[in-house]
């Protein structure tokens, strides 16, 4: 079996405070490997306000700036402008926001920056809830999932917001979904994003073992099942129009994905069927877009 070629530099140092088996820590390690050293990372409030460590220490081997919850897009725009003034067009500006800081609280700043086609990469580290503060729902939480604010007696009534469609409608040059179970694919998409100017958006699914109620050792397996069950398909959108869909050879029913997670433990068979129906529908929709 061939090795997965990944750069050896570790720009996320050890001793960080991520929980055991944190999907986002795997994602961060891989993303920083892909980005290299000439980068300024911007962190609106998220797990990553905590994980790197506490003042005056940090695990990052690259420049990182913590920003207010709403300000991911705006801070990045400002840093980009400052670098431009200095004549530095080599250093990359990269935002790493959570789903709260992207889907909900930071959406305005992101939308504004995307509309201006600001030159940065925005990575949405989606763990489908406010996991850092104790698992509250966000607009990225999937339909019928348990969180502390959508308890089993009244699980989430609304489907997950389609952030990719929103970003595509800004007609940004590049948007892509990725997940940690496919590191080669993630690295390829990062490389591709690096080679493009303008706003680039990466929607990165990172399972959260405590928030999703899964054992830490199946974190990667769950993200693989998210793709195989088509709950989280891998695809790219160029210029807001050109969809490239990555067909997964081994498709599994959503039940395979749901049954391993405590946050879906309360689902009845008919509810699972409902989720399957919606997943099939959005897959069809995506296929139609990819054919156009």
């Amino acid at each position: 079996m061939k090795k997965i070629p990944i750069p050896i530099e570790e720009n996320l140092g050890r001793g960080h405070l991520a929980c055991a088996g944190c999907g986002a820590a795997i994602g961060m390690r891989l993303v920083l490997k892909a980005l290299g050293e000439r980068v300024v990372m911007v962190f609106p409030a998220s797990c990553w306000s905590i994980i790197p460590g506490f003042w005056p220490y940090s695990s990052f081997r690259v420049t990182a700036i913590h920003a207010g919850f709403v300000t991911g897009g705006a801070t990045a725009s400002g840093i980009r402008a400052a670098l431009d003034v200095k004549g530095d067009d080599e250093t990359l500006v990269v935002v790493w926001g959570g789903d709260g800081g992207t889907f909900d609280i930071g959406l305005q700043a992101l939308s504004g920056a995307a509309e201006r086609n600001e030159d940065f990469i925005y990575i949405c580290n989606d763990n489908e809830g406010y996991m850092n503060t104790g698992t509250q729902r966000s607009s990225a939480t999937p339909l019928m999932a348990w969180t502390t604010t959508t308890p089993v007696a009244q699980p989430k009534e609304n489907p997950k917001k389609d952030i990719m469609a929103i970003m595509a409608d800004h007609q940004i040059p590049y948007a892509a979904t990725a997940t940690i179970a496919y590191p080669e694919d993630l690295l390829r998409k990062m490389e591709k994003a690096k080679g493009i100017r303008g706003t680039r958006f990466i929607h990165l699914l990172s399972p959260c073992p405590p928030g999703w109620r899964i054992p830490s050792e199946i974190c990667v397996k769950i993200s693989r099942l998210a793709v195989r069950s088509r709950v989280f398909p891998l695809y790219e959108i160029e210029k807001g129009r050109i969809y490239t869909l990555q067909e997964e050879k081994r498709v599994v029913p959503v039940k395979e994905y749901l049954k391993l997670q405590g946050r879906f433990g309360h689902l009845s068979n008919s509810q699972i069927e409902e989720i399957q129906r919606r997943v099939d529908e959005s897959w069809d929709r995506l296929q139609r877009k990819a054919r156009c």
Binding site: G13, R14, G15, H16, L17, A20, P52, G53, W55, P56, Y57, S58, S59, F60, R61
Partner: peptide, 17 residues
């Protein structure tokens, strides 16, 4: 603004195991 001045390597997370 506050800036960090060192790494977290002193934090031996192996003790969590």
């Amino acid at each position: 603004i506050p800036i960090s001045m060192g790494f977290m390597d002193w934090n031996k997370t192996g003790t969590w195991r």
